[in-house]
């Protein structure tokens, strides 16, 4: 009788996604240590990785990396299935949907910065929708929207520039 034996052979795709997801998870753990003036406001450094993956390998890989980061990052931070996890998940899904649209903007005019900004605003929109519908069902939540929007503007710009720089550097070393 043969032993029940399941062998999973990781493909090259799997390894690549795991590598990028690991980098994104590391960034989200690092940024959890950065104190922020308002709960929920984060730089979203892991989105730099999502943008790089989107530009180099397409939307499907970006979805994998982003969702693996949300799940594994929350496990590492002890947030899995806590409210913060669902906020992250809602933000990630909303920004992935936005990126799926934004990536079709003509590359001649729009770069990673546009994608990053659009993703950042979609992220806060997704988060605030979940927060309003579920966690804090009160219209007073509107009062913090401008602060989230300001954070999305600044960090969206910074992350977009960082992603553009990484993509440029990678392009240079390949030549």
């Amino acid at each position: 009788m043969r032993a029940a034996h399941i062998e999973l052979t990781p493909t090259e795709d799997d390894r690549r996604i795991a590598r990028y997801a690991a980098a994104a998870i590391a960034l989200s753990v690092v940024e959890a240590a950065i104190p922020m003036p308002l709960p929920g406001v984060k730089p979203g450094l892991a989105n730099i990785i999502t943008l790089v993956v989107l530009a180099r390998y397409g939307w499907r890989d970006a979805v994998w990396v982003s969702l693996l980061r949300v799940v594994a990052g929350s496990l590492l931070l002890g947030q899995f299935l806590a409210p913060g996890f669902f906020l992250s998940l809602a933000g990630a899904l909303a920004s992935l949907a936005a990126l799926g649209l934004a990536m079709h903007l003509p590359a001649r005019w729009f770069g990673p910065v546009s994608q990053s900004l659009v993703a950042a605003f979609a992220h806060i929109a997704g988060q605030l929708a979940v927060a309003r519908l579920w966690l804090v069902p009160h219209d007073g939540l509107i009062a913090i929207v401008p602060f989230f929007a300001l954070a999305a503007l600044l960090f969206g710009l910074a992350n977009g520039l960082a992603a553009a720089k990484l993509l440029e550097d990678a392009g240079r070393t390949r030549q």
Partner: peptide, 8 residues
């Protein structure tokens, strides 16, 4: 890029 400025 020009579009990035517009989005920003």
């Amino acid at each position: 890029k020009p579009g990035d400025w517009a989005v920003l």
